[in-house]
Design a protein around this nucleic acid. Structure first.
Length: 594
RNA sequence: CGGGGCGUAGCUCAGUCCGGUAGAGCACUGCGUUUGGGACGCAGGGGCCGUCGGUUCAAAUCCGGCCGCCCCGACCA
């Protein structure tokens, strides 16, 4: 491509809306432009990079037996009504009507369509196992798009779907995806970490998310380097050892004025926050029959509630923080609330297992200005449920060996779900076994966001001058900067460009009539891994300058050797990536709790 | 949906408090001089000041509604 006729500009200044590195750089380098919140145009460089990411995905999916196909973006509502998601998913699902008034949805994902295809294509166990995938635009009306390409509403996603007759087959396909996803991350230059995750809305049993660990990430992760335990904080477990607070003592009411918070209470009584029990109130929706109920959670005073666990354990469909009047309605005094003496008909009390196992905690007395000392679970208060509902914290002992875990943030680049029969069951996707009996197909689904991957590549590979992309993802391998002025030199530059093209080198040729500084700055910004500079000066020295993006001084290479040197450098870089794949984690070699 | 911030030229922003002829830098056009890290001079073009309404002799500026964008939270297949 020649820059003199190129579509798109670089930006000298950082647009006001960008506050992550990847967003700022992709904007400045002329990769993406925003149309509206969460809606982006991908300019030629970005689209070239995304096609390269797609090609990597394609190769890896094909390598584990995938077959690429294409499915519609607009679906009839009936499909989603059958799976139930038409009713379960609210605003994030974009709905529209066609000219006849028929309800349609914009696809958020394609489990339903795959399941419906199975109707006609999978009749027998002989047709299984299968794995199909596609790369397609999906739309999710997110409550809030953010971070440039990190979280958008319309995006291209690689989704694959495995179809098996049994869970052993599903497990095998799941494991193959696990390995493939590590390879995909490495080939794109983005280090990914698999963490256990909440199957959530997908409704399956096992799930992993592939995270790019970065402070810009939206998810919190708990990772133990020592044992390999890695989990989304939402479902992270940790080992709990109760403190020795002595044998159960007498329950006594103590005057504790102005101690609305655990900190104030502990300070007032001269005890540790660990010796207290903390009440956190939520309102849970328990479905049409039961309706809303106050969910009262009790965790140790130094810990926080894990809302995902609480929702799961309590059986609530959704949870939200309770308002003061809702708390009071159940007979609790905010600031001095007690698990004792609540209206049990209006509440669901969930006590963290650590609290239940701890003796002599200080809890509220349900009376302003008073707390109870020596509270013991079972003797002094009861619960509907004792369950692990405390959130893991930085340094918490991991559940495997008690080794300390670190909390980190991560961007979810991909995920793998064991769906089971969630969709095949409701949509009637069945097969017949050897004995003629009908069974629902066992499904798995596996996604990777292509644009989000690009954002992570940009986040990982840039400096203050711009993008510095890996050879596998860069839109062009080489930036050819021509500073030639004379007709003869210009002809040499032109000849070199043609020679590089002919040799299969992807080259962005800066043949514009602008000053050298502009050309260098643009080349740095656009992120090609190598730069070739041709000028009267370089020709006088015997050829052209060749080097890594900002390498100075660059090597002088004779004109006739340039294509060979460039081709070799590129091949070497690809080989280095291939070598790095050998030491990647796999399902087989991963530590047992990864 | 709750909290906060912001909408003025393609981009970054000043002007708004205190109402009175719409500005700068970059970008763009023309000419000339330059030419190895975002050159310089001269001359130009470009704005319904987000939008609707109100107050006023007069509104980018004051008041109200709405819309949009960004950040935090909620939510997140």
């Amino acid at each position: 491509m020649r820059l003199s006729s190129f579509f798109g500009q670089t930006l000298r200044e950082v647009p006001a809306e960008a506050d992550t590195v990847s967003h700022a750089m992709l904007l400045r380098a002329g990769y993406i432009r925003q149309l509206a919140a969460g809606l982006f145009s991908y300019l030629p460089p970005a689209w070239r990079s995304m096609r390269k990411i797609e090609q990597i995905l394609r190769e890896e999916m094909d390598a584990i037996g995938g077959q690429e196909m294409c499915m519609p973006v607009v679906h009839p509502a009936e499909l989603w009504q059958q799976s139930g998601r038409w009713y379960e998913i609210g605003d994030p699902m974009a709905r529209l009507k066609d000219r006849r008034g028929r309800d349609l949805v914009l696809a958020m994902t394609h489990e339903e369509v795959v399941a419906s295809l199975c109707h006609t294509e999978i009749r027998s166990y002989r047709h299984l196992p299968q794995m199909v995938y596609h790369m397609q635009t999906k739309f999710r009306d997110e409550p809030r798009a953010r971070g440039g390409l990190i979280r958008v509403r319309e995006f291209v996603m690689k989704d694959s779907y495995s179809l098996d007759r049994d869970y052993a087959g599903l497990q095998a396909q799941y494991e193959r995806h696990y390995d493939a996803y590590y390879r995909i991350g490495a080939r794109c230059g983005v280090p990914l970490v698999a963490v256990q995750s909440d199957p959530g809305m997908m409704g399956g049993k096992m799930a992993h998310e592939f995270m790019y660990v970065s402070p810009i990430g939206e998810d919190a992760l708990a990772i133990c380097e020592e044992t390999g335990y890695a989990s989304n904080l939402e479902i992270a477990e940790f080992r709990k050892v109760p403190d020795d607070n002595g044998p159960p003592a007498r329950l006594e009411k103590v005057y504790t004025p102005n101690t609305h918070t655990i900190e104030a209470l502990a300070a007032f009584l001269g005890i540790s926050m660990r010796q207290t029990g903390k009440m956190v109130f939520f309102v849970g929706d328990f479905g049409p029959e039961t309706g809303e109920k106050l969910v009262v959670s009790v965790v140790r005073g130094d810990m926080e509630v894990n809302e995902v666990q609480l929702r799961y354990q309590s059986g609530a469909r959704t949870l939200r923080s309770a308002e003061a009047d809702e708390i009071a309605a159940a007979g609790a005094v905010p600031g001095y609330a007690s698990p004792r003496g609540l209206d049990r008909s209006k509440t669901v009390i969930v006590v963290d297992d650590l609290v239940a196992a701890s003796t002599n905690l200080v809890v509220g007395a349900n009376e302003a200005g008073y707390h109870l000392r020596g509270a013991n679970y079972g003797r002094d208060y009861e619960a509907d449920l004792v369950a692990p509902i405390a959130a893991a914290y930085d340094g918490a002992p991991d559940p495997v060996a008690g080794a300390p875990m670190t909390l980190a943030r991560g961007v979810e680049v991909g995920n793998i779900f064991q769906l089971g029969t969630r969709y095949s069951g409701s949509l009637g996707a069945t097969f017949t076994d050897e004995k003629g009996a009908e069974h629902p197909i066992i499904m798995g689904s596996y996604g990777i966001g292509v644009g989000r991957m690009l954002a992570c590549v940009a986040e990982e590979h840039s400096d203050k001058h711009g993008l510095d992309l890996p050879v596998s993802v860069a839109p062009w391998h080489v930036g050819l900067v021509s500073l030639a002025r004379s007709g003869a030199s210009k002809a040499k530059a032109e000849g070199l460009y043609q020679a590089l093209l002919k040799a299969g080198v992807e080259v962005l040729y800066d043949d514009r009539a602008v000053s050298p500084g502009v050309k260098f700055a643009d080349a740095d910004l656009r992120g090609m891994p190598w730069r070739i500079t041709i000028s009267e000066r370089s020709l006088k020295k015997g050829g052209v300058e060749f080097g890594r993006r900002r390498e100075r001084p660059a090597r002088i290479i004779a004109l006739e050797n340039v294509t060979e040197v460039a081709t070799e450098a590129i091949a070497k870089a690809f080989k280095a990536i291939d070598r790095s794949l050998e030491s990647l984690p796999t399902w087989a070699t991963r530590k047992p709790h990864g």
